[in-house]
């Protein structure tokens, strides 16, 4: 049963990584940029939900919606003012700008909300569900996290496969120039991608802080890096890849903590990533593009 418990907490952590990684991978697929500020959007989402629930005593669901709304606007604003002017710039310049945005969000949060840690109260309560006559207990947070991740995954797959905007996204990620010639508004498609990614980041932030309740301005950076790793692990640019990569990364991390060493768990996670990339250089589900000479 302990094994099953580890698997469940691994999947739960992995679901959070997967939701964050979806944001990374969608933005990468379309804008071809590593959005390092994504992790800090998570933090902003968590803070908004925290204040909505504790200071204005709104119901948790409203808190989550508020966090999603604020992060969506934030994502669109960041894209409009920092990334859009650099659409034709070399990718390193965009990367450094993203890092600048990340510093900006972290330090802005530090000024607005002080660096003192906030204790985040879980949005779904701290109850636990007992299974198999109490042999296996699962917290509501774990269940909510896993269910949200699955719902988000199904919704995104449907969205990119069946809606007009989703098809526009896929077209842009294949070939921006051709998409534009076919009458797709590339700029608004990219904005929508950022909006969706940021809204997902808000959900991830709330779920992350429900499971690990300390909230500081740098809360988002390490999960951000891990989720970025997860996105690459699954094959960056691929939505099922981000889902798979996130889940695997979460499970590996919890198993490494349980069976190898708590302190070295990060090292184990990254070592697995390296081995996978050496065997499959484009990630688990990434497209291997052969070079034309």
């Amino acid at each position: 049963m302990t094994f099953l418990n580890y698997v469940l907490s691994g999947i739960s952590l992995g679901s959070i990584y997967a939701i964050i990684a979806l944001g990374y991978t969608m933005v990468y697929g379309i804008a071809k940029m590593l959005n390092f500020a994504h992790g800090d959007v998570i933090m902003v989402g968590a803070y908004i939900c925290f204040f909505a629930v504790t200071r204005y005593s709104l119901p948790p669901l409203v808190g989550v919606l508020a966090a999603m709304a604020v992060c969506t606007v934030l994502g669109i604003l960041v894209e409009r003012f920092a990334y859009k002017p650099l659409r034709t710039a070399p990718s390193l310049a965009v990367l450094i700008t993203a890092i600048g945005v990340s510093y900006f969000l972290q330090n802005g949060a530090q000024l607005l909300w002080t660096p003192n840690p906030k204790v985040f109260s879980s949005v779904v309560g701290t109850g636990r569900l007992a299974l198999f006559g109490g042999q296996l207990t699962v917290s509501y947070v774990t269940i909510t996290t896993i269910v949200s991740c699955i719902v988000i995954m199904i919704a995104l797959t449907w969205f990119t496969g069946n809606t007009k905007m989703g098809k526009a996204m896929r077209a842009c990620s294949e070939d921006k120039g051709a998409a534009q010639l076919m009458g797709i508004n590339v700029n608004s498609t990219i904005s929508v991608t950022f909006a969706i990614g940021s809204a997902l980041a808000a959900i991830a932030g709330v779920l992350l802080c429900s499971a690990y309740p300390t909230l500081v301005p740098t809360t988002g950076s390490m999960p951000g890096i891990k989720a970025f790793t997860a996105a690459v692990f699954g094959g960056i640019g691929s939505i099922p890849g981000a889902f798979l990569g996130g889940l695997l990364l979460g499970v590996i991390e919890i198993f490494a903590k349980a069976y190898i060493s708590t302190q070295l768990s990060d090292a184990v996670v990254f070592a697995v990533l390296i081995v996978v990339l050496l065997v499959k250089p484009a990630g688990l589900l990434g497209k291997q593009v052969s070079e034309k000479v």
Partner: peptide, 9 residues
């Protein structure tokens, strides 16, 4: 640090 970030961007 906020100014640093803005200068960088």
């Amino acid at each position: 640090m906020l100014i640093y970030a803005i200068v960088l961007i």
